[in-house]
């Protein structure tokens, strides 16, 4: 690409009906091209169907955000919390899962910080329902996902994975995980207590 006018023609075609871009069946297309075209078609569908796109057909600047989706997600989460408090864990889990799907379905051009915030809360809460149902492995994975999405200010998720690991008897892993949490969160009371519990079990080992 030494000058701006040069480019390599790609073996692609457009389906005139669906407007989807496909690789030319007569040539052998690379895997990278196929993958990229799939991303492109997904993005195109999102651009055409999303209601947050103005008539000009290009994504609006990241802020301000259309509040509709955010409100729906918050509602799902609040309902989930209510179900959880009533002890209907499976229902709460379903609501959180719906919320997660909705948060993941947020248009890509909307602020990523918002997506992180929503996802971390929802995964952390879903981890809690898994724990209430004693599904420790799923709880551990959800709590870890929550932490990965939002590391700081997420002490609950740190604690939840630590607890799940402890319940599964993975003491070393639990201890190093909770220590990592303490490094990020500072001296969080619950985490300190959990670490003590783990250490006590480890010493008995």
């Amino acid at each position: 690409m030494s000058d701006l006018t040069h480019f390599d023609m790609q073996p692609i075609l457009m389906d005139p009906k669906s407007k989807a871009i496909t690789t030319d069946p007569n040539t052998k297309a690379s895997r990278a091209l196929t993958a990229e075209l799939e991303l492109l078609n997904t993005l195109h569908r999102a651009l055409v169907t999303s209601d947050s796109v103005p008539p000009s057909g290009v994504p609006p600047p990241p802020v301000p955000v259309n509040p509709k989706r955010g409100a729906n997600i918050t509602k799902l989460r609040d309902n989930g919390n209510a179900e959880y408090r009533k002890g209907r864990y499976a229902e709460a889990q379903k609501l959180y899962t719906l919320g997660i799907q909705m948060a993941l379905g947020r248009p890509l051009w909307e602020p990523s910080a918002l997506v992180r915030e929503e996802l971390s809360g929802l995964y952390s809460n879903r981890a809690q329902t898994h724990m209430a149902l004693q599904n420790w492995p799923e709880g551990a994975v959800d709590a870890e996902t929550s932490v990965e999405v939002k590391k700081i200010g997420n002490a609950k998720a740190w604690w939840r994975r630590g607890k799940c690991l402890l319940e599964m008897g993975r003491l070393d892993e639990a201890a190093s995980w909770v220590r990592g949490g303490l490094e990020v969160e500072g001296e969080e009371g619950e985490l300190v207590a959990l670490l003590k519990e783990i250490e006590a079990k480890r010493e008995a080992h």
Binding site: I21, L43, L47
Partner: peptide
């Protein structure tokens, strides 16, 4: 144009 816009975004 909508396809071109998506491609340009990518």
């Amino acid at each position: 144009d909508s396809v071109l816009k998506a491609a340009l975004l990518r």
